[in-house]
Design a protein around this nucleic acid. Structure first.
Lengths: 256, 256
DNA sequence: GTTTGATTGTGTTATTATGACACAATGTAA
DNA sequence: TTACATTGTGTCATAATAACACAATCAAAC
């Protein structure tokens, strides 16, 4: 089926497949080159960008829907994913679209479930940047990572959703060793620290940080050191999965 | 309009007023006689009890809907209320009803939006027990407070919703001085401590508890003492609203 | 080859927060 | 007047945290 035809069908008949009035928006965090990043889609119907999102099949668990949507956008299967907030303002999506776009597709705005009010469930995901293969969706012409500090204009209330997710991530940091989901298998202590600093938005003392992280017991130091650095080579670490899981259950207390 | 007629209309035409597939369930916490309590409704269509809940008007903010629902059940206007989780299992409400009840009302199950799948947004509320006037809803024949430790059988997944709310409340305790919402204007230190102990489900040291609470600066000791106790009379305290709000913004760190 | 610069690994100390604990004071009831 | 239950307050040992310094090592510059 041609893309235009698919879009048309989605606008006119999507409500036969999906629950009306409810959507899911995902804030996908990644970490690369010492920067926290978020995955965004370039909408084809406006100059703005959007969070990857989608809808819930009539008999699908909301969590499953979020997983499915994420899988389609990132190719990733088992990722850290959880709901963090519901956005239920009736005016949240009543913003201006590009009418030309819909005219071209032959869609009348009062004719489609897609222009109804939507309540959106926000999910946030932490992914290993290096393993993601971004794929735009039907309504997007591109898919890119953006530095958190450098996010473009977003549609609807997506900016607010992103900010809420970020706040939530900061809170989580003390309970959840989020590094496991955001970093590759092996990583150095400075890299891990940089991740924490980026999320929290503040500098941390190198030595105290190391002590606290080590004390949790969730890390395992490898014998290997990083090669090719113009200074003392840092050790690689990886997460000790068994201790990591224990710590999760115990609800690791942890202040930075 | 007669109740039966109202119910009938709700089942057959409610979807003209409300969003389909989405509901709100409220966990209303109160504190009385040194016990944490929750407000429940006795369903008229089964032997079970239910959380007070309702639906979202087509142009209503979800938060407003929760407020409205709560106002109708408790008579209270300005209460501490917030969403804590979305329950999105497609099977969550596919449980057995009392068919007799619906037959009596002349409602066919495949004929009403009310038997569709619902995604429910959980809101929890902390209220001053002494100010609540419980009012059952259209589908309930009663409305009562239950001790948290002594909750009867609940419909659907309401037990799980309640438990999730309770967990959330425990987490909140460290960030939010919840006492303000659950206690009357003036209260004694032992009463406040008992509240914390009940929510956390563990005993706290009397002297350490007092020190920490006092150190936050959110309390103001009155000159008045409690009368009519067969032992040393405890002082009354009230919340220092200005410091309380400051502490909220600063995100009071606080471990028990 | 030696030096330089940047960065890592590690340990000490002062300060603060926490948990465990004891005794004097007070109001009613016996 | 005494007994009892419960409150108000303070101390001390221990644990957690923040601030801080120096030696080791790698690549690049000379």
């Amino acid at each position: 089926m041609k893309p235009d035809k698919k879009i048309n069908e989605h606008f006119l008949k999507g409500d036969e497949k999906y629950l009306r009035h409810i959507s899911i928006d995902c804030v996908v965090f990644g970490f690369h080159e010492n920067e926290l990043k978020v995955l965004l889609l370039k909408t084809s119907y406006s100059a703005k960008w959007a969070l990857p999102g989608g809808f819930i099949l009539k008999k699908e668990h909301t969590d499953e829907a979020a997983k499915r949507i994420l899988k389609e956008r990132t190719g990733l299967d088992k990722i850290y994913l959880q709901q963090f907030h519901v956005f239920g303002d009736p005016g949240r999506s009543n913003r201006k679209f590009n009418d030309e776009y819909f005219k071209k597709l032959g869609i009348k705005k009062d004719n489609s479930w897609m222009f109804d009010r939507f309540i959106s469930i926000g999910y946030d995901a932490l992914v290993d940047f290096t393993k993601v293969h971004p794929v735009p969706d039907l309504f997007s012409e591109g898919c890119e990572w953006f530095k958190i500090s450098d996010v473009p204009a977003l549609i609807f209330d997506h900016k607010k959703i992103l900010e809420t997710a970020l706040q939530d991530l900061r809170l989580q940091l003390n309970f959840h060793p989020v590094g496991y989901n955001l970093l590759p298998l092996k990583f150095t202590m400075p890299e891990l620290q940089k991740l924490y600093e980026t999320i929290l938005g503040k500098k941390l003392d190198r030595r105290n940080f190391q002590r606290k992280i080590i004390d949790t017991g969730i890390l395992k130091r490898l014998d290997e050191t990083k090669k090719g650095v113009a200074h003392k080579a840092p050790f690689y670490y990886k997460f000790d999965l068994s201790n990591y899981k224990k710590a999760l259950k115990a609800g690791m207390g942890f202040e930075l």
